[in-house]
Design a protein around this nucleic acid. Structure first.
Lengths: 104, 104
DNA sequence: GAAGTATTTAACAAAATAGTTATATAGTTA
DNA sequence: TAACTATATAACTATTTTGTTAAATACTTC
């Protein structure tokens, strides 16, 4: 499945969208994320795996815990590319913004 | 279901995303859209109903036919709002672009 | 290395999705 | 108004998704 398809599938679920929004303030461990929702740990874990497969988050191990970070690049690039593919006049602006933000 | 949820659910399906892209060039009747895909008329019809429920397309009757148009406003606003809710630095730009384009 | 904590993976059930064919609805034309 | 064309809705099926609980894995600490 292409990245775009994986991203849109990932964003279709409200829990996963909320996870991304929670990560906006910074990294969080899986367990901290679980506490924010009324579903089980394994359920959250699978949401995280889906977000990771879409490159919308990355993980890093920190001792016992696994810490997640949102990949705003992927999100902004993919969504803005789609906006552009449907509304031609708007693509260039969005792309430039995304590039500037993410440059190393 | 909130509009945002309906929009992201609608965009989760590749056929529906492609329908929006095909409508980029202008209005099309349901039957013309059907010809672009390898699935039945009723299947396309239901995709169109889902896109309509999300305000991603609008329809108008033209004699025998029902003609569909993409609502780029909804698409750009909803996606850019979400980008902004995850990547704060990027929201204002996108919103202004969408507003300018759509102003009556 | 045994016990404890954090997280994922496995196995399964319920609900949602997307396709099919058959039927109904709405407008057109003879 | 009868037949035709375009489209939607209904009824059904197969697949996918999302949740649950139980078991496995990985790291830490005693």
């Amino acid at each position: 499945m292409a990245t775009t398809a994986r991203v849109f599938k990932a964003l279709a679920d409200p829990t996963r969208r909320q996870i991304l929004q929670e990560l906006k303030t910074g990294e969080m461990a899986a367990g901290e994320i679980v506490e924010l929702f009324d579903i089980s740990g394994p359920a959250v874990s699978r949401h995280l795996a889906i977000l990771k497969a879409a490159d919308l988050v990355t993980e890093r191990r920190d001792g016992n815990r696994i810490v997640y970070k949102v990949e705003t690049e992927t999100l902004a690039n993919c969504l803005s590319e789609f906006i552009g593919s449907v509304c031609p006049a708007q693509i260039s602006v969005r792309k430039n913004v995304a590039k500037r933000k993410g440059k190393k």
